[in-house]
């Protein structure tokens, strides 16, 4: 079973506990600027959005790397091998999502590797905005919300009424 981070921005409060957990695991210190996951604050729209690598099946970062420093492990995770990385940054250009970034203090690139099986960000998230789930069922919770509304609409308004929204 492949597992992935499932992010629900609607539950995010912008507390950055995910960034703290990530930087502590990866860097041994609390340092949000080195976090592999970042939370973006859309102040005027009252939205906070955590964002990180989605572990593409066909990963452009991996394809672009000239020294094969990015490999796919058994869990489908794209892992950067620091001993091979030459810091050329081509992968940071290739990634369409911007989730591979250069770390000037080491001269290597950094990206999310799902903590090789138990992501610290998901564990640290206090609201369930970041969860770690079976990739093939990632959408089921969202489906259930809509299904619940459909069930409610049909049970209160009769079987032929379209599901109410919002």
């Amino acid at each position: 079973m492949l597992r992935a981070l499932v992010i629900d921005p609607g539950k995010c409060t912008g507390c950055k506990q995910c960034e703290m957990a990530c930087s502590f695991v990866k860097e041994g210190e609390f340092n949000v600027s080195k976090s592999r996951i970042r939370v973006f604050d859309f102040h005027t729209e009252a939205r906070f959005v955590p964002y990180t690598c989605t572990q593409c099946a066909e990963a452009w970062c991996q394809q672009a790397c000239p020294v094969n420093a990015i490999t796919t492990n058994a869990d489908g995770v794209k892992v950067v091998h620091e001993n091979l990385c030459v810091g050329c940054k081509v992968c940071t250009i290739a990634c369409p999502f911007g989730t591979v970034n250069y770390n000037a203090s080491t001269g290597k690139v950094i990206k999310c590797d799902l903590c090789l099986g138990s992501p610290a960000c998901a564990e640290a998230c206090p609201t369930g905005a970041i969860t770690f789930k079976d990739t093939e069922q990632a959408g089921f919770d969202k489906m259930k919300v809509w299904a619940t509304q459909a069930a409610h609409a049909t049970s209160t308004q009769g079987p032929n009424t379209p599901a109410a929204k919002g």
């Binding site: 912008g14 507390c15 950055k16 506990q17 009252a46 939205r47 906070f48 206090p126 609201t127």
Partner: peptide
């Protein structure tokens, strides 16, 4: 519209 946390806050 929503609640918001300050840095590091799990209360929000």
């Amino acid at each position: 519209q929503t609640n918001q946390a300050c840095f590091g806050c799990t209360i929000a």
